[in-house]
């Protein structure tokens, strides 16, 4: 049985089922991160003192540049498919995957540096919320990388059978990826600068 409206848009909503589904998922993600940001505000306003300069701003800035760059390559991967250039699509999607991996490597160095000094989540309220927020965000990066690996690997076969459906999958992956970037855009100043 075929899933309806994966290529053509539903007449009532004007959207494919996949796209509407991803947007509803992202709405739930806003609630998840919103609850954690709210927790951060409660913890910070209730704290007698809040540490400043505990995190490496330059590493955080580098990771912001990396994620923004990956958002650009992601939208270009989708745009290339729309312009019927599958080769360029693969190049841009691979770049996005590599940038995501570099982000995680940076995060690994950052975490291991803190942990080597005994600064785990148990160390302070600030580090507890830092590890919770960045850890959850990191899990989202890994999730995006798994989907990208699928689209670069076995999932790419769909392009030959149904290029429009494949393009829609890349667009939906892109929506998720831009959201992950958007969350980091707020995490960076909140955790590293303020």
């Amino acid at each position: 049985m075929n899933i309806p409206y994966v290529v053509e848009e539903r007449p009532d909503s004007g959207l494919t089922n996949g796209k509407l589904g991803v947007w509803l998922f992202l709405a739930s993600e806003v609630m998840l991160f919103g609850a954690l940001f709210s927790t951060y505000i409660i913890l910070r306003t209730g704290a007698v003192e809040w540490p400043h300069g505990e995190l490496n701003v330059w590493l955080g800035m580098a990771n912001t540049f990396i994620l923004i760059g990956s958002s650009v390559t992601m939208v270009m991967a989708w745009a290339s498919l729309k312009m019927h250039d599958f080769g360029k699509h693969r190049l841009y999607l691979t770049l996005t995957f590599v940038l995501a991996a570099v982000f995680l490597v940076n995060k690994y160095f950052e975490y291991s540096d803190h942990l080597s000094r005994g600064e785990g989540p148990w160390h302070s309220t600030f580090l507890a919320i830092y590890y919770t927020l960045t850890g959850l965000h990191g899990l989202h990066i890994i999730g995006g990388m798994i989907v990208m690996a699928y689209l670069l690997g076995p999932g790419a076969a769909l392009y030959k059978k149904n290029p429009d459906q494949f393009t829609n999958r890349v667009e939906n992956t892109g929506l998720y990826w831009h959201f992950v970037d958007l969350v980091w855009i707020f995490l960076f100043p909140v955790l590293y600068l303020l």
Binding site: L15, M31, A35, S38, T45
Partner: peptide
Amino acid sequence: RWIYGALILTLVGFIVLMSVP
């Protein structure tokens, strides 16, 4: 507009969450 509708609902929920503190 279906997406805008879903996002407006999300925005309301987000504002409530941010008001919790």
